[in-house]
Design a protein around this nucleic acid. Structure first.
Length: 561
RNA sequence: GCGCCUGUAGCUCAGUUGGAUAGAGCAACUGACUUCUAAUCAGUAGGCCUGAGGUUCGAAUCCUCACAGGCGCGCCA
């Protein structure tokens, strides 16, 4: 729909430009807020006022004149309105044909190829393997997963990666915590590390070690058995994390271990590489990266006085490694509390010659968990926090994901467990899923009643002798519905370009709303042999779009509810 | 102190990258189940888009300042 109009405007502008000789702006087409204004509108005329020094209406007239010369056959009306908008209204026939194409080609016709096979890597969740995933990680997982689905459907070659921070002090602390609990469990009352992890899961791990290894580490020092216990604990944690994510419906293509980068000598060589670019220097007994030569406000230490690499050093290496693996674009999804880290990582990528617009960070804001409208206090150190596992078990993955995707990633989110659990109108997931289930039910009915137009026939390729006569769809609500799903590719493309999955969530709610109203007002299955198949065809179209959208969000589309 | 994010209906939030008369859900109120699923629908009401300037044909959107809230500013990870 959009592309048709853009091409036509483009042609008109080009032919006019032989007179104008101006710099043509990008043509932007939008859906007017009010349906009475038309189906699509453009504000190009207003954008040209400055260059051409003419009134916007005058320019709009010249453009529409040229458009009319092309005599496009799908417009019912082109008019100039307001300050200089050009409004396009399509013929009903155009909508019928568009629906026909959707039914013929299925959900693949909803996708685009703006990615053109570009390799893009999305790194998300990347939680420390020192404890279970909490609800904030869940939000990151939901957003990252949906974003990957979107990018893939938009023609990008997407890789999903989880970065494991298994090299630092945090993991060692996990080991010490487990060590203490293990000793205590077997009656050796060693002190618990001061800022150790206090959650119950630590005792659980200690118990597991006792089950599989017995008491052979009892009364040993941490130096003697710490490495084994640490490895055991963090691997167990990691397996847990992977399982939680899988049950949440999020699967990664690759898990990158930080420790591995160190062991392969890649950290060292990454720093060397920077040094060869003259971006590394020594000062005060430490080694620094000149990040302030890029976008950072000061230089950063990569190797401390004690000779240890900093966490940032691993990150330099990790991001260089992403580039070495041949990705054109790199997307990192981080908790919003890490936003201060963006300039230095951006500096790293620029130092390695990646253009600035090829690195994007999506920030995930905090989730405040509520129960009965009251905030639940969360303290990670004390081990008192709500895990993703608990929420999945209590609320379910579909609802949880959908709620995470009803907000822009970068804004705070209140997650009320009780409301989420209620199977009520307050829950927007059901609204969308219900529309899908209703349509599914219609097709079951149609089949039972032996209505000619079964779902498979309505949609099937190569069975055109059964194809419904879509010109029977003349009600306003029917045309509105078709218009709405013709907008899907625009919304979808916008979501891909802006990395904003929530746009699809909103769109689906709107589409479901229009469908519910239509369903209520008009009977789909009747004894009208021409109208019934056409309306079922329309419903099939809605169903295809709903299914595609839900799939992209990672939410299931149930046949019954 | 510096930086980033946020501020839109009573509540929770959208707002198509600067466009037309600012939208949705919930809550409130009025109505609709002998019906293909009422997890639904129709309607009413609700606004100084935090405030003040500025940029231009045009601002919730961009710029400056103020106010309020959140988060960051380590040779921690």
């Amino acid at each position: 729909m959009k592309q048709n109009v853009i091409e036509i405007i483009q042609k008109a502008l080009e032919s006019l430009n032989t007179v104008w000789g101006a710099n043509l702006p990008d043509i932007e087409v939008e859906v007017p807020r009010d349906e009475t204004m038309g189906d699509l509108a453009t504000a190009v005329a207003m954008r040209l006022t400055k260059v051409l020094k003419k009134s916007p209406r005058k320019i709009a007239e010249e453009i529409t004149g040229k458009i009319n010369e092309q005599q496009p056959d799908f417009f019912e009306k082109i008019e100039i309105a307001g300050a200089g908008f050009i409004n396009f209204r399509f013929k009903k026939d155009f909508f019928h044909k568009s629906l026909g194409m959707l039914l013929e080609e299925g959900h693949l016709s909803l996708r685009t190829d703006i990615g053109k096979g570009q390799k893009i890597q999305v790194e998300f969740v990347s939680a420390n393997p020192t404890g279970p995933l909490h609800i904030g990680h869940g939000r990151g997982a939901a957003v990252g997963n949906a974003l990957c689905n979107i990018l893939k459907a938009a023609g990008f070659d997407v890789q999903r990666e989880f970065y494991i921070n298994d090299a630092g002090l945090q993991v060692k602390l996990l080991g010490r915590s487990v060590f203490a609990r293990y000793q205590q469990l077997l009656g050796n009352d060693v002190p618990f590390p001061e800022d150790g992890y206090k959650g119950d899961y630590i005792e659980f791990i200690a118990q597991e070690i006792n089950n599989s290894e017995g008491n052979k580490y009892l009364n040993r020092t941490f130096e003697e058995c710490g490495e084994f216990l640490t490895d055991y604990a963090y691997k167990m944690m990691l397996a847990d994390i992977e399982k939680d994510l899988k049950d949440f419906g999020v699967v990664f293509d690759r898990w990158q271990s930080e420790r591995e980068l160190h062991m392969q000598g890649k950290v060292e060589s990454a720093i060397k590489d920077l040094k060869s670019r003259d971006l590394i220097y020594e000062k005060d007994g430490a080694v620094w990266f000149s990040s302030s030569r890029f976008e950072d406000d000061k230089d950063r230490v990569v190797k401390k006085q004690d000779g240890e690499y900093t966490y940032f050093a691993s990150d330099i290496c990790y991001h260089k490694d992403k580039l070495d693996r041949g990705f054109d674009t790199i997307i990192d999804i981080w908790g919003a509390d890490h936003h201060g880290y963006i300039p230095r990582v951006r500096s790293v990528l620029e130092a390695f010659d990646l253009p600035g617009d090829k690195f994007k960070v999506v920030l995930i804001q905090m989730v405040s968990l509520l129960r009965h409208g009251q905030p639940v206090q969360m303290s990670k150190r004390a081990g008192a926090f709500i895990t993703l596992r608990e929420v999945i078990d209590e609320v379910g993955p579909d609802i949880t994901k959908f709620i995470f995707l009803t907000r822009k990633a970068d804004s705070h989110l209140d997650f009320d467990i009780d409301i989420a659990k209620e199977q009520s109108a307050e829950n927007p997931v059901f609204y969308v899923q219900y529309a899908f289930a209703r349509i599914s039910s219609l097709f079951r009915q149609a089949e039972e009643k032996g209505v000619m137009s079964q779902e498979s026939r309505v949609s099937g390729r190569g069975v055109s002798q059964y194809a419904p006569d879509l010109s029977a769809l003349i009600e306003d609500e029917e045309i509105s519905l078709i218009k709405k799903f013709l907008q899907y590719p625009m919304v979808f493309e916008g979501a891909a370009l802006a990395c904003e999955p929530h746009r699809i969530t909103y769109y689906l709610q709107e589409l479901a709303g229009i469908f519910h109203a239509y369903y209520y007002k008009h009977r789909i299955i009747s004894d009208d042999n021409r109208l019934t198949p056409a309306r079922l065809g329309l419903c099939k179209g809605v169903k295809i779009v709903l299914e595609e959208g839900l799939k992209i969000l990672g939410v299931s589309a149930p046949e019954r509810m």
